[in-house]
Simulated scan of single mutants.
Amino acid sequence: MRTDIFARLDREPEPPKIEVPRMTWTRLALFGGTLAFYLVIVVAVLLSTWLVTLDWKIMLFRPYQQWPELHAFLDYYVVLGQRGPTAVMVASWLGWRSWRQHTLRPLLSLGAALLLLNVTVGAVKLGLGRAGPHYATQVGSAELFAGGDIFPSGHTANAVVTWGILAYLATTPRARRYLSATSAVVALGVGLTTVYLGTHWLSDVLLGWAAGLLILLALPWCEPVIAVVEAWILDLRDRMREQLRSRRRLVPSLPVATGNRPVPGLFPPRPAGDGEPVREAVGAGGGRGPSATRGAGLQGSQLAAPRAHHPATHPAHAAHHAVRSERGPAGPAGSRRPPHSRPATGG
């Protein structure tokens, strides 16, 4: 029995309990506030304000030296914000959700969120080029345009988006509340862990939280595109399946030969005497009979092949056929006419 996603999609339509989030006024207000916070962080770092001073104070405090007993655990915990492992884990869960809910929307929503994350966060990282705490060269400097790529924090933004997508796709209010709280705790923990390990400034983490939240709040604007892509994928699947069925109908079903037995229906029966080799008739005088012409096309290897051994003739039949030496006088050389036959014409 097939258990793939497309097979389940063929069985029944999308359940009515799945509600696609819309851009409400509340969500729009949250999006505007988060965007304003994002811009404030960027401007504060560009102008080297008190936020940059706070970054340096935390960096010089070196939390990983103050609490070294946490280092081993947090080294593993920060993996929850790494893009590769988290994307695989969440995609596996959403793939099961797609199979159960008979829709590709969960997987396509994750793909759209990760695409937005890579484009927006990656563009700001490369554009500002901020160096990390371990590569800082001047105390009190924002370390911008120094060839780095840590502003905003990719681990933090990825933790917000990857785990927050589970709350975004929740089908019940209760599940949405629990998943929202869980994803918030994971994202906060991952961001603070990067500050503890000294791989990010505090301002990097603040901007990473804002960047991830902006992507989650903007996902309802992507829902029409997700619906179009899902319909296109399913239509492409149907067309490919129809082409495969057409090719299978065009291929003839031939019987399989077993052993040395000929396969019936593959080769039509040949008329008797058509193309069959005819033995050359040789008379007493060595002349060639009329059948010699028909056998002239035989290859030398075929003519030289030894004759098959035939069993001895039954005594009852041998009595009626005398050998050549016991026959009476024959006609002209090479003739097979009986000795007492008469010509067909008179005279």
Score class of each variant (00 low, 15 high):
P252V: 02
F61T: 04
G154Y: 03
G164C: 02
S183P: 01
V205C: 05
G283K: 03
H320S: 14
S301A: 14
G347W: 04
T171C: 04
R288P: 15
H310G: 14
H314V: 15
A281Y: 15
P277T: 04
R324W: 12
P152L: 08
G346Q: 08
G189F: 04
R342G: 11
A304I: 04
A146I: 00
G164M: 09
H314E: 15
G33R: 08
G289T: 03
H155A: 08
G148E: 01
L115R: 08
V256P: 05
R105V: 14
L39D: 05
L197W: 09
T313Q: 15
N118M: 11
E223D: 02
L206P: 01
S153P: 06
L179R: 00
P343G: 13
S253R: 10
R337C: 12
R8Q: 11
P277K: 06
I215N: 01
L303M: 08
S335H: 05
T258L: 14
F31R: 03
R2H: 13
L126E: 14
L47W: 08
G147M: 10
A113N: 05
D149K: 12
E143Y: 05
A184P: 06
F267E: 15
R342E: 12
V195I: 15
A157E: 10
L266E: 14
V88E: 11
S341K: 03
A218R: 06
A170K: 00
H309E: 15
E276N: 08
Y76R: 10
M1T: 15
T199M: 09
T182H: 10
G265F: 00
A292C: 08
R130Q: 00
P68Q: 07
A296H: 13
P133F: 05
F6Y: 09
S335N: 07
V121G: 06
R307S: 15
G275P: 12
L214H: 01
A344I: 10
A210W: 04
